[in-house]
């Protein structure tokens, strides 16, 4: 084993393992300090959280939600009168509705162009399961019909977004005759 001259004084003479020699260098002091500091930090951390009342995860959560609840009530309750929905006709809003139809998961059950598929009904014909009045469509999107497979979107979309979506569906889909349209379901409403 190659031993340098300056290592002779730290070479441990009687250590020889299949030719492997060992030096008696001191562990680097900075490494020992890292160790002492992490031990110290750990004692403080454990003491604070376990013995001296540091917040546990349930209280951390309540705190987070308390801040959110106080700040979000305005924006969520600022919503519309659900029984008196007026559709948006502005092209900008309808484009926004189309975007939502594609980016939320509407298309997965109702087809890319509202034609319906083996899960959801056709949205382009004049047969409706839960009604086609603006407030009915609005509520269908917002609260869903869980047992029939329509999911509620109240937590995923703001009222404004739901309105954009309902407007897009009721204005743009009507009579669009997409390919592969699904057979009508529900009541025919003229």
């Amino acid at each position: 084993m190659e031993i340098k001259d300056n290592e002779r004084k730290v070479l441990i003479e009687d250590h020889d393992y299949d030719g492997i020699k060992e030096l008696d260098n001191k562990p680097p002091p900075w490494l020992m300090w890292v160790f002492y500091l992490t031990v110290l930090w750990s004692a403080g951390y454990f003491g604070y959280y376990v013995f001296f009342g540091g917040p546990n995860q349930a209280t951390e959560y309540s705190k987070e939600m308390a801040i959110v609840d106080s700040s979000k009530t305005d924006s969520l309750t600022k919503g519309l009168d659900e029984n008196n929905i007026v559709l948006l006709k502005d092209e900008k809003d309808l484009v926004a509705g189309a975007e939502l139809f594609k980016s939320k998961i509407c298309f997965t059950c109702h087809g890319n162009n509202g034609e319906g598929n083996n899960i959801g009904p056709n949205l382009t014909d004049n047969a409706w399961i839960h009604g086609n009045k603006p407030n009915e469509v609005f509520k269908t999107i917002k609260y869903g019909f869980i047992t029939k497979g329509m999911l509620p979107y109240k937590d995923q979309l703001s009222d404004q977004q739901i309105l954009e979506l309902a407007s897009y569906i009721l204005i743009k889909f009507k009579g669009s005759n997409p390919a592969n349209a699904k057979a009508p379901q529900g009541t025919v409403i003229n």
């Binding site: 084993m1 299949d18 492997i20 030096l23 008696d24 562990p27 490494l31």
Partner: peptide
Amino acid sequence: YYFLPKMANRPVYSYRLSIIHFWS
């Protein structure tokens, strides 16, 4: 600890560090 000193033909740097870091 076996192969590195063999490959490099160099002694292990610190026996004391071996003891400390092994047990900790």
